[in-house]
Design a protein around this nucleic acid. Sequence first.
DNA 1: AATTCTAACTAACAAGCGTTAGTTTTGTTA
DNA 2: TAACAAAACTAACGCTTGTTAGTTAGAATT
Lengths: 189, 189
Amino acid sequence: MKTISRKEEIIATATRLFYEKGYTAVSMRDIATAMDIKAASLYNHIKSKQEILSEIILKVAKEFTDGMVSVVTENTSAIKKVEKVIELHIDITVNHSEALAALNNDWMHLEEEDLEAFVKMREDYEENFRIIIKQGMDAGEIKSYHPEVILFSILSTLRTLYLWYQKRGKVDVNILKKDMVSVLIKGIV
Amino acid sequence: MKTISRKEEIIATATRLFYEKGYTAVSMRDIATAMDIKAASLYNHIKSKQEILSEIILKVAKEFTDGMVSVVTENTSAIKKVEKVIELHIDITVNHSEALAALNNDWMHLEEEDLEAFVKMREDYEENFRIIIKQGMDAGEIKSYHPEVILFSILSTLRTLYLWYQKRGKVDVNILKKDMVSVLIKGIV
DNA sequence: AATTCTAACTAACAAGCGTTAGTTTTGTTA
DNA sequence: TAACAAAACTAACGCTTGTTAGTTAGAATT
């Protein structure tokens, strides 16, 4: 039986508060108050505020990295790979929507090795996506626009999905995947 | 001859720092140091830190609102209007890329009337975009996916354009407009 | 030459920050 | 019931925060 530890409760609470106000605007006292304890008590379970941020961000970042690696090494068409990447983002968004706020907006407040690790993961991720798009252009599956425009059009939409997935009535995941794939790949006309 | 006032210099400096680290992570002493003066001297020119944030955000928000109103009242096809909206975003991004960081990430730190005004402008903007898309669906110009998926796919890309316009070698604005319109409207296949 | 304006300065404030040390309460196991 | 571990507590630390008050130096205007 997997019970959730006190540390995980702290991280969950912090994730929600960071989502609402951002890392620097949330104090340790804010997190403690939300849990009905005193700030000092948090330190029985975590090492520092920085550790909370790094656990939130790096855990999700690893999911992206692992997912992307498994997609990029598949032996399928580029378009199929793009579809898989879209589905990967939707799955992670559905499961960790609040953590994505910290990942998108507060990664620059990571320190030293954590910051370096994150930046590297992000660059590798983008590079893998770029490779997929170029593969698709070489194969004639994808139109030859400026690859960066395609890359960031799709990636921007996927990265900010967390902002409206929550409030728009949590539409069914499979319908969402189908529509997103259509809109992002086939356009709207 | 239009010289820039000391107040405008403060806002320009703050805009750059907010872009790099976010509103709450930048102190008045940070802003002052970047201008080679003391923090207290800033208050000869501005009322509060909050005033700086609100000037940065609301000025750009008004540009979006005005631009959208002028597009939505045009007597053209829905697709043409979507094109105009894309071009509007690109123009504003090119001219105010750093201010868009505050608008996107720090609007929740606005207070009272400023916060209310911003939220209202943002909702109205989205609603106008929604109307354009529905008009396009009714006229058979735009495919009948879930309108929200189309709305936020396009809007997400446009809203985060500021993040990569800067580092990707400032590609020519007209080429950027042409490619973005193609990718966002006609898709990538 | 006297006045006003602009824009900087020093010094300080009350409040909040992340964090540590040491102690007490609570619940479980021997 | 005694011992132990988990998790809370109080109190305080040094530092940073946004901001105010009062003053001064130099430039522009009268």
